[in-house]
Design a protein around this nucleic acid. Sequence first.
DNA 1: CGTCAGCGGGTTTTT
DNA 2: CCCGCTGACG
Length: 674
Amino acid sequence: MEDRYVAAAASHLSPFYPPVNIMKLNEPQEKAVRTVKGRVLVLAGAGSGKTRVIVHRVAHLIQDLNVPPTAILGLTFTNKAAAEMRHRLETLIGKPLAKQVTLSTFHSFCMQVLRKEIEKLGYTREFSLYDEGDLQRLIQQLTREMLGHEGELPSLGPTKAALADAANQGFSAEEAEGGTWHDSFSKDLYVRLQTTLRSYNAVSFDNLISLTIRLFEEHPKTLEQYQERFRYLMIDEYQDTNPAQFRLAELLAAKYQNLCVVGDDDQSIYGWRGAEVKNILQFKADHTIKLEQNYRSTSNILAAANAVIGHNKNRHEKKLWSAGSASDPIEIFNAPTDLEEAQGVVQRLMVWKEKGFKWRDMAVLYRSNALSRAMEAALIQASWQNPISNKWMRGIPYEVFGGLEFAERGEIKDLLAYLRAIANPQDEEALLRIINVPRRGISDAFLDKLTQENRSLNVPLWNLLEEIAQGNKTFPGHARAVGGISSFVNLMKMAAKRFETPPLSETLSWLIEAINYKKAIEEEVKSEKMREFKWENVQECINALAQHENDSLQDFIATTTLNRQSIESHTKQTNEDRVHLMTLHSAKGLEFPICFLIGLEDGILPHEKSMKQTGLEEERRLFYVGITRAQKHLTLSMARARMRMGKTNPTNPSRFLHEIPKALFKATDHKVFV
DNA sequence: CGTCAGCGGGTTTTT
DNA sequence: CCCGCTGACG
């Protein structure tokens, strides 16, 4: 069967010069865009227009080669990168076309696939998605069960590492049995974890990938459907793929082999998550294209970046160059304390604002989420003069990306657990979380008894609860608990019915009322302020659901779990004029005219937990990624004393700072104005 | 069964 | 500093 667009795709060989959209690219960029058949490796240095190439390549396929947008699949690692790519594609080819292209993270792509196909693997479509926290609690529980009360949970370090490794390989319970393990406890725990998830009708983040692989391997017909649909596959940040993701990509590309991978070994920063740089270094390519001209940064910034990354031994030599001017030197300041460091950054932000930059042109990047605290405090306290109205404003608008905060709050987790249990009553984790919230007189001891019983009978907890509610099972002396369970079961049944019909947000409101959650908060929480805060969060959750009226309950839960930002960001308009705060990891793939890297101290960057040699090189790459986010101006900062875990400790400047040639930077006082 | 004080432990990074 | 957990008590 000869598709129209397959024939058309060969037209890149014709003398026809493709229209407008790729005219402004440099030679290797254009080559990358026009090489649409076969296995293409694009080695793209930082700021070399990698995203631009991907987006133009998609546009070229659609507009010039008549490839249907639905035949293109672009995979990224972070939601932010996927969103950025979509945004840029929209400006290039318009929303209607861009919307039809599948651009998503590995995990959400797999989620979409499994939503449709998971029944082939023996799960139901209502399966739950467990985030890292859910998984952690489950592991804890299983560990306790396995060790009994004797073992005082000995060093779980090696075990956790072994579990992570198996997960990165994408092992199923059966595969784990045959795999090589350091110790049998780790293996048993992993096997037990996988089988328990399975019995809960639940999948972990890693399962999203591994189950999709299994689906494709066990159901060649299904795989073929996806291969037929997605004939053009592109993977961004390919250096970050782990073994499972690698397998998945190869499966999808196996038939047509139109696989374009883009990446940079110098920006490999997910080794801790099982990423293997060798995937990009050993990629079997029909065409290899190197992008080495940097368009993003001034030559000072680029020179600093090159000098820093040059200290890594384990890398491929490249020669990033820029035609740009030297411009300002990099600024470095060392403040007495973390608070003053934050104030120094805020003062500089205000200077740039006065010079005409938008807040959204500026970003503050840091190694770990905890570092945002002091920054936020300083941003909230700042007073600045609006250059247009000349009015004095209190607080600089900012947005923190990626922090877990909102989704991690107890009340949100409670409500989501309700939704999860309603959608998937087999989700024991969710069930146990909310069965006694608010208090229904069901004690932990009683629940232990029940879980033990359902394990030995091999009956889902929910079924047992139903039995109890119907009076088929009696527990003399536990009248209160039995009563609580009955009302809980009835409530959940009623809720499940109600959630079948939209609007979902109204049903959630009903549920919150039905469980008297407001009263529960009022009884639980002492401080008036906290109560208000929590109640606001509950309202936020309703609002978030209202934003997803067209989705099913399951879709809402999945989106929320896969993209924590999504549950809170709907209130803030995207693209609002705010300073961006984020970790170095989530900044990858992004660029900002004005960049601040804060907390550049030994122990933070490089992080104390990764001071071993290989770890150190990854930390350096992280620094490199940070430096290369800056387009026009870069400020590096540190503090001589920093509050950590409630204690203020002296610190030393990051060893990486010594790797920047003196000629490239200017040391300044932390205060801009006195 | 629920509450509350006291304590010990832990901070990388993301989906 | 901020949790989650524990164990004693009401």
